[in-house]
Nucleic acid binder design. Structure first.
Lengths: 222, 222
DNA sequence: CTCTTAATTATCCAACCGATTAATTGATAA
DNA sequence: TTATCAATTAATCGGTTGGATAATTAAGAG
């Protein structure tokens, strides 16, 4: 009842963020916007909801990112940056060709399975014909190490005779991503149609093994 | 100036549809709603725009389909029905196992490439976690012939020794669809990242051949 | 010709939502 | 202390949009 500071009085609030910290606020907005956009899409994503969940005013979102579109682009950039970072911890150069191919396949499957929201975000960006990615220099460049890693494995495998010649690293990357991505992105329509389990740990593990197999069968010399 | 009928006076209108025809009006709405939803998604799709392009009042949309969601579900049903219909014209039973597998692969690639709006619609439905498909009996059933067709080819191939045993028809269907679907659905983010052409007729044909190859390499006995 | 029913239109609205204006407050340096 | 500037809030606005109410009109039956 007495005139206390308003802040501590609200017991139900979910731990107010430290304010007046540019980095922190920006990051907080990005994290929550990622969830919001991955969940509801670009037109479905709501800036009011982001502001509410971030415990800030909607105006702040526009203060840091000028528009909803730019916020979405920033979210995309962050999401891809995180994936590429994880990808760099693979050390395929230390492995035999077959082991390297299998490890790459397993890593990709694991990443997509572990980050369905990333998969959703990429789907959404494709619905928008990749226009945010196309307009971001950062996003377009982020990708090169990924391919050269594969190229080296293929070269090594060809030289050693384990892998057949003429395989395009970009095509291999596409094939792997298609298989791995689909298993998460199209899970719902596929499960609905075929009453096929794609979500249980067991099913995921089986599919992961099948994809690694398929990829190896495709590149090996025979 | 004189009191003429209002209808013929509007010269600029784009050929008014024959009205008072339940079937025709319904179908017209469906066709245009398909375009609208495939283009802009569920929340992005606009009922006003649909009405305008169909030269009807928005109220009519709600008269035939009670809500935007139900309209979307009806659109999905139509889209899948058309694909399954095309699928039935394949006659895999008349072909040798290898030819059958390749033909199936090529058909699927061709269909997805020829119907990017269908691919987009399925992506969108997955963003919504397949909830419309899950709530439609028709949609869930529409799919069985597709799988049994594949199962027969596999059986025949196994018996004849051309195909290795133990391949699950649903898994094969998933693999093929993943490869074929991704080439259309994720074209934009992939092209933006890898400056890789996936849209020219040449690139499509090359990918189609690669997918058929990959599939056959996966199932053949060796 | 008229009665009934179903298809269609005209009009409106309340909620939502991205974006803006302007005021306020906290941190920092002089 | 105070002046300055950046971070944050409060309040609002204008356009959009799914959906509803109620009147109108065409088609077919008897």
């Amino acid at each position: 009842m007495a005139s206390v500071k308003k802040q501590p009085a609200r017991a139900a609030k979910p731990a107010p963020i430290k304010r007046r910290d540019r980095q922190r606020t920006r990051q907080e907005i990005l994290d929550i916007a990622f969830e919001e956009f991955a969940e509801n899409g670009l037109s479905g994503g709501n800036t009011d909801a982001i502001a509410a969940r971030a415990n800030i005013t909607k105006r702040l979102i526009f203060y840091y990112f000028n528009s909803k579109e730019e916020l979405f682009t920033a979210v995309l950039e962050m999401a891809y940056a995180e994936m590429r970072a994880a990808e760099e911890d693979l050390h395929l150069e230390a492995l035999e060709p077959e082991a390297a191919i299998r490890r790459l396949a397993e890593f990709t499957c694991d990443f997509h399975q572990a980050h369905p929201q990333f998969v959703r975000l990429v789907s959404i960006e494709n619905i928008h014909r990749g226009r945010h990615m196309a307009s971001s220099r950062r996003l377009k460049q982020m990708t090169q190490p990924s391919i050269s890693q594969i190229a080296k494995v293929l070269e090594r495998g060809e030289a050693g005779g384990a892998i057949r010649p003429g395989i395009d690293p970009i095509e291999l990357h596409m094939t792997l991503n298609a298989l791995s991505f689909f298993a998460v992105a199209n899970r719902h329509t596929f499960e609905a149609q075929f009453a096929s389990d794609m979500s249980s740990p067991k099913a995921k593990a089986r599919r992961r093994a099948a994809i690694a197999d398929l990829l190896w069968r495709y590149v090996r010399k025979d």
